[in-house]
Simulated assay, not measured.
Amino acid sequence: MSSVPAGPVPGLDVPAFHESVTRWFDDAARDLPWRRPERTPWEVMVSEFMLQQTPVVRVLPVWRAWMQRWPRPEDLAAATAGEAVRAWGRLGYPRRALRLHATAAEITGRHGGAVPARHDELLDLPGVGAYTAAAIAVFAFGDRRTVVDTNIRRVHARVVTGRALPSRSLTAAETRLAEELMPADDALSVRWNQAVMELGALICTARAPRCERCPVRNACAWVAAGRPAPEEAPPGQTWHGTDRQVRGAIMAVLRAGAAPVPSRHLTGPVDVTVGAPDLTTVLDPGALRALDALHGLDAPEEQRRRALEGLLSDGLAVEGPAGVSLPG
């Protein structure tokens, strides 16, 4: 791939960049069900909700189970919010399940059960922000829009600007660069978005890029500069001991059980709750195992209370006279 002095991105042969990446994608693309020609806009929408901050390998089995159970928005809308949260399983960030359930109800009530194709109508749906609306418009309806996720930003940063990693938050400069690199042809623009995203996910990864297999390594400014280290180290994914871990453990108890769980068993002292005589009459075996795992974290009572209060405040759990459960 040759460099050229003029064009939307000085020094980069953009048409050749498009051709190399999309040709690589033709051979290397993963066979994902939400990319297949027969996929529906609803299938694309569910995938976009699930893929937020979650890798494909974890999403695939949950997505397939959801599509079998709720193949249309009206199917999910007819279920309870609690059923959606329970089916979300261990994907993390379960508020996405609540928002997807609310979106399904909105689509059913206001759009006749059809995912709206207009970008402004997508933005009006619960839980659909700028990125998700653009991704659905592009991948479900073939719109020519920029879709800028972390993978795409990383490819752009390395190939064009020579930086090891993009900035921590999306900048106006990155958005402009994505727009400048966008092909003019509608069909090619959709393919381009998919291809660059896949390149970042499979080859141009954050921690161990496979530069020897990259279709644009000869045009990559980062490689040409000797692959300099990041200007700032990426933040670590702290989990153990955090409120997020405790929230997840409480959610596991609620998902596993059919009956409400008295809050004292979630937040009280371990020696009082675990093995208490009344537990086996209140909780089924799955919930008991999840409760043991919760208390096995040795999280302070204050942290467990704070986590439970957060779940109640977010609508991920409700508390009634019999105890705490998933929303109805």
Rank of each mutant, 00 (worst) to 15 (best):
A225Q: 13
Q245E: 13
G257R: 04
R227G: 14
E231T: 15
A172Q: 14
L266W: 00
T242R: 06
C214M: 05
S189G: 02
A208G: 05
P215S: 05
A206P: 08
P183E: 08
G268L: 06
E174M: 12
W192R: 01
E231Q: 15
V261C: 07
E179I: 06
R264H: 14
A259N: 09
G268S: 06
V223I: 10
T175A: 14
C214A: 06
A173R: 14
R264K: 12
A178N: 08
V270P: 01
W222I: 04
V253F: 01
R191I: 01
G226Y: 10
H240P: 08
C220Y: 07
I203P: 04
V216Y: 01
R255K: 10
A164P: 05
A208Q: 10
P234C: 14
Q245A: 05
A256G: 15
M197Q: 03
V196R: 02
R244M: 00
A187M: 05
T171W: 07
P209G: 09
S263A: 15
T205R: 13
M197A: 08
M251F: 04
T238F: 07
R244W: 00
G241D: 10
V246H: 02
D243F: 01
D185Q: 09
L266Q: 07
R255A: 10
S263E: 15
A201S: 02
I250A: 01
A172E: 13
M197S: 05
R207G: 07
A219F: 04
L177N: 09
H265P: 03
